[in-house]
Design a protein around this nucleic acid. Sequence first.
DNA 1: TATTATTTGTGAAGTAGTTCACAACAATTT
DNA 2: AAATTGTTGTGAACTACTTCACAAATAATA
Lengths: 216, 216
Amino acid sequence: MRITGKRISESTIHRLSLYFRSLGILEKEGYVTVSSKDLAQREKLTPAQVRKDLSFFGQFGTRGLGYPVVELRQQIAEILGINRKWNVALIGIGNVGSALVSFKEFIRQGFIIKLIFDNDQRKIGSFNKGIEVHDVTNLRQMLNKHNIELVIIAVPASVAQRIVDEVVDAGVKALLSFAPTNLRVPSNVTMRTVNMAIEMEHLSFHLTNENLYYTA
Amino acid sequence: MRITGKRISESTIHRLSLYFRSLGILEKEGYVTVSSKDLAQREKLTPAQVRKDLSFFGQFGTRGLGYPVVELRQQIAEILGINRKWNVALIGIGNVGSALVSFKEFIRQGFIIKLIFDNDQRKIGSFNKGIEVHDVTNLRQMLNKHNIELVIIAVPASVAQRIVDEVVDAGVKALLSFAPTNLRVPSNVTMRTVNMAIEMEHLSFHLTNENLYYTA
DNA sequence: TATTATTTGTGAAGTAGTTCACAACAATTT
DNA sequence: AAATTGTTGTGAACTACTTCACAAATAATA
Ligand SMILES: NC(=O)c1ccc[n+]([C@@H]2O[C@H](COP(=O)([O-])OP(=O)(O)OC[C@H]3O[C@@H](n4cnc5c(N)ncnc54)[C@H](O)[C@@H]3O)[C@@H](O)[C@H]2O)c1
Ligand SMILES: NC(=O)c1ccc[n+]([C@@H]2O[C@H](COP(=O)([O-])OP(=O)(O)OC[C@H]3O[C@@H](n4cnc5c(N)ncnc54)[C@H](O)[C@@H]3O)[C@@H](O)[C@H]2O)c1
C-alpha cells in the first residue's frame, strides 16, 4: 500500500471505516462485487466521493464491473490498520470503563483490552471479563512490559491530564479519551476525545435553530 | 439572536461547544473579558476562527478589549439551545445506558433523562438513579405524554432501526445513537451516531500510516 | 484631550474537500 | 467482432471552510 502524495483527510479515514462496515454486510449478503454507486447509496454519499477516497490508496476496481467485495474489504482493513490485533489498555474501570470491556465490536476489530488500571483499592485485583484490574501506580512499567500501543482514558476529568502525561511518557502514541476536558498531548501523539455532551449540544442546536437555519 | 444568511457548519457548532466550556473555566478563574487570541489558544485554534464563528451569530465583543466572559457564555448557551432543560428518554438500559444515567455532565447541561425503556422483564419496573424503567411496548404514548424531545438509543444494533422508526413516528426530531450500525431517519430529523470502534480505527490508521502520511 | 496600543468584525484571499464530467477500459449483447 | 452498456479513475470545476489583513472602534496612557 502506497500513499500518493496527498494528505489524507480525517473525513476520508472516517468514510473508509463506513465502507469497511458496508462491505462486511455486502459480503454476508453474498455480493461478489459492488459499484461505487451502490456503496455510496448505503452510506448516503456520492459515488464520486467513494471513488475519490479509494483512489488515494490505489486502484481497487474493475471498470464496468465495480469493486471486489471481499478483497476491497481486506484492503481497507490494511489501510486502517485493523488487519491485525492491537494491545489496548483501559484506565479507569467505572461506568464507562465497564461498558467498554464488554463492547464486542472492539474485540471483533482486533482491539484487545489487555490491561485495566484503577486507583480504587476495592477494584484493584478484581477481574472484569477475565481481565485483572491493576494499580495505576504501576502504569508505566506495565504499559511497556505488555507492549501497549493504544490507551483508553475513562477516568474523571480532574485527573485525566495527569494520567495522559504518564501514558505519553510511557511512549504510547494513540489515546482515546472520554473525559469531557481539554487534554494536551505532544504533536507526535494522536488523541481523540469522545464528548457525549457535545453530541447532545449539536442536537439541541438543531432543534433550537430548525427554522432559522437559512435566512430568506 | 439572528442567523445571518449563511449556513452554519457542523464544525462551527462543535467549536461553539468548545468555547462554551472554555468560557466556563475562564469564568471560574475570574476573568471578566477574554480576547479571541486567548480563547483560541485554549482550544488550539486561530483567533480569526473564533471571531468568524461568533460573527455568524452577532457582534459580542468590544474592540480593544475582547469578549465579556459571562455574557458570551450565556449567548452561546442560547445559540446552542442549552439555556433551558430538555426532556430526554433513554432506550436500552444495558452497559452503555447505565453509564449514561450517571453521567453528570448531561444534567449539568440541562439534558434531563425523564424516561428509561427496556424490553427485559427483569429490568422493567426497576429504578436507575431514581428513574423507573418502562416497558418499551408503551414507547410511543409515553414519549408523547412526557413531551420527550430528544432520545438516546442504547439498544443492540439488531433492533436499533426498529426502535428508531418508532421514535421518529412518535414525532421526536433528535436522536443520539450508540448502535454501531447505519440507521435511516427522515431528513427533518437529526440523528448523530457515536461509534467508538470507528474512533479506534482513526487511531490505528494514524499508528499504521505514521510515516507515509506524506510522500517525499 | 490627544496619542498609542489593542482587538474586533469582516470582505478578500487562500486552502481543503467534494462533485463533475469524461476518457479509458471491461463486460455483455447482438 | 462490433456495438452497446456499465463503471472506474482522475484532472478540473466547484463549493465550503479557514486564514489573512486591515479599517473601525475602544481602551489605556501620556
Ligand atoms: N458515565 C458516562 O456515561 C460518561 C459519558 C461520557 C463521558 N464520561 C466521562 O468518562 C469518565 C469516566 O466516567 P465514569 O462515569 O466511568 O466515571 P466513574 O467515576 O464511574 O469511573 C471513573 C473510574 O476512574 C477511577 N479513577 C479515579 N481516579 C483515578 C486515577 N487517578 N487513576 C486511575 N483510576 C482512577 C475511579 O476509581 C473509577 O473507577 C469521566 O471523565 C466522565 O466524565 C462518562
Ligand atoms: N458496551 C459498550 O461499551 C458500547 C460501546 C459503544 C457502543 N455500544 C453499543 O451500544 C448499544 C448498547 O450496548 P450495551 O453494551 O449497553 O448492550 P447491552 O446488551 O448491555 O444493553 C442493551 C439493552 O437494550 C435492551 N434491549 C434489547 N432489545 C430491546 C428492545 N427491542 N427494546 C428495548 N430495549 C431493548 C436490553 O435488554 C439491554 O438492557 C449496542 O448497540 C452496542 O453495540 C456499546
